[in-house]
Design a protein around this nucleic acid. Structure first.
Lengths: 220, 220
DNA sequence: ACGGAACCGTAACGTACGGTACGGATGTTT
DNA sequence: AAACATCCGTACCGTACGTTACGGTTCCGT
């Protein structure tokens, strides 16, 4: 079996995964109103099978969130022999990757759904999204930040605080704007520029004297 | 002819405003499932009146968002005779006020609802929230930033970019976390501390040589 | 080949909720 | 006082959707 270990004990067959991908597609293109009938028709399966496999509607949607979360895991960014150029490059690639993720239609649709369910009692979708989004990237980036500090390239007291400063500079108001439907053009070139700007700002704040660029590196 | 739903200059009677406050209360304490029957019962009014006053459910909810937005408007932050202390103080108070707003239960509930509706076609609640939230505070803060630049205290090219840097440093990941249901303790003392930290970081990035604090003011 | 399990497509059921209609009570105008 | 407007409370209607049930088909094991 090539499937990676399943933390929640939930594993799905190929057919069921295809159904979950269908749910994702419906969420993206049609907004939150994903009906069981629409899923069954689009996935060419019977509603009876949906209920047998996922219990009820909430189970189907929860499984969809978990399924998407399981697909997002990417490689770490820590590395050996870290110099300032490698650190800056890693930070920029990390920022660009994250900007691309949070502005992607799938992420937007999924976050919208999780947020809309976060207010109701007995919903842990928000916690799942946080664990696989915000906190997962934190755990992936922090080793890089710590390595930068070990190498004398960064200067900060609390890794968590430094991380939050970095994602604040990278994300700014992007996430809330796309969630609220703002047509925010984030072409790859712009993402790359924003990632570099945020990284240089971060290095101005947390870099050591010999590593960081000058004050106000991009006049922003 | 009485007052039909007035899209442009919307003004409501005391009774209608009480109804809208009821909707806000229901949104806060019960999540997104605000039914017309629940509103009518809680507000002690008939559904017929709801439909007469607000047209339909979407009109009621849109009016609620506008009503809340009309209550948030606060004083401007521009002032004469600007020195570095006054500028820093204004920025800190602005940041603290905004952090308090975005972490308040009412704002969270309203944003959740607008976001859940942002995916469906024919919904402008997200645009309303953006206009009265993100863009409104931008128009209120930019004069202060421009004044700071005029006074030689700040150095940036684009006011919009500088503003986005500032709110990125202030908000960081707070908004997405509270929207997803993260129990984020934001006591007034912590808000004040975060506002000061973000402001000093911003002054490090955008302050002129003689005004800004040293590099890495808070080791974050 | 035969029996059974899994599954698809569709129909049917029950409920929730948006929207409408109506009787009765209260306040306002003439 | 009489006519009228406003509004509350409740009952009602139509629809959408979650959920269940069932007949027909395919596939697998023996």
């Amino acid at each position: 079996m090539t499937t990676p270990p399943d933390p929640a004990g939930e594993t799905f067959t190929e057919r069921q995964q295809a159904v979950l991908d269908t749910v994702l597609a419906l969420m993206v293109e049609q907004g939150g109103d994903v009906t069981m009938t629409a899923v069954a028709r689009r996935a060419s399966c019977s509603k009876e099978s949906l209920y047998k496999w996922f219990g009820d509607r909430d189970g189907l949607l929860t499984a969809t969130v978990r399924w998407q979360a399981s697909k997002v895991r990417a490689g770490n960014y820590d590395r050996q022999k870290l110099d300032i150029l490698a650190l800056r490059d890693s930070l920029i690639r990390f920022a660009a990757n994250w900007l691309g993720v949070i502005s992607s239609p799938t992420s937007v649709a999924l976050n919208r759904f999780a947020i809309s369910q976060a207010g109701t009692r007995g919903s842990n979708l928000g916690a799942i999204m946080l664990a696989n989004g915000r906190f997962a990237i934190g755990e992936r980036l922090k080793p890089l930040l710590d390595a930068g500090r070990e190498a004398g390239l960064l200067d900060f007291n609390d890794t968590e605080t430094a991380f939050r400063t970095f994602i604040g500079l990278v994300g700014r108001d992007v996430q809330i704007r796309v969630l609220l439907g703002d047509r925010l053009s984030l072409a790859p070139a712009e993402i790359e520029r924003d990632a570099a700007r945020a990284t240089d700002q971060f290095l101005t704040l947390c870099g050591t004297e010999k590593t960081g660029p000058g004050r106000n590196p991009t006049n922003a």
